[in-house]
Amino acid sequence: MIKIKNVCKSFGDKHVLRGVNFEVRDGETVVIIGSSGVGKSILLKTIVGLIKPDDGSVKIDDIDITKSSSFDLHETQKKMGYVFQEAALFDSLSIFENVAFGLRTLTSHTDKEIEQKVAQCLSMVGLEKVEHLKPSDLSGGMKKRVGLARAVAYQPSYILYDEPTTGLDPIMADVISDLIINLKKYLHVTSIVVTHDMKSAYKIADRIVMLYNGGIIFNGALEEAQNTKNEYVKQFVEGSRRGPILTDRTFGMDKI
């Protein structure tokens, strides 16, 4: 279980997170939505321990990673997989070595088992015969799928996805959504997904959390989000520029 309590994070004068509270139960898929630059990726990185919050706590299976030693933090991170927005594949390693990385460092599988697992994970994301290639040989979408394969390969208990379907074609985005559902169904994986893709969000979410102005303004089940009267959520899910969420773009547009 993941418990986020009163998490605050500022960068200089910019207060990105101002007391974020929510919980993710085991086996649940929570989708975090919100405008660009609202702090969704910062929140995700805080949960995985890559960013230390200024205040508050993040408890993974009752271990507060904001106060734990670097050894304990590493041990907790081993339970978690992270799909990066830009894939973050290791340039110097082949695709096979990238996907096998977690299997080698976090599990005791034999080389033959690792080979099978890598092939299986790559085929799960629709990639075949790419093992020998380098990340620079792949397109952006293919890199993203390899990043996903790398995060799921060692079967972590928690997987955090930072915009997993952005940059993919609609069919591949649907395949990735199905993959997230299957990981939950068959391996009981707990997921937190940051996305702008509402079609995918509706398909995979058990619960939707909306971040606005450094705090959570909506936290409810999928059906609640679909039928909410919350003007902020309505505007965001409908993708309308008219509403309470003000952006620089709407300011500019209104002046025309």
Partner: peptide
């Protein structure tokens, strides 16, 4: 430095490697 700005160092952390 390139690994840092392309989040590859963060990826190492998440894969349990310093």
């Amino acid at each position: 430095g390139t690994m840092k700005v392309t989040e590859q160092l963060d990826a190492l952390y998440t894969l349990g490697t310093s």
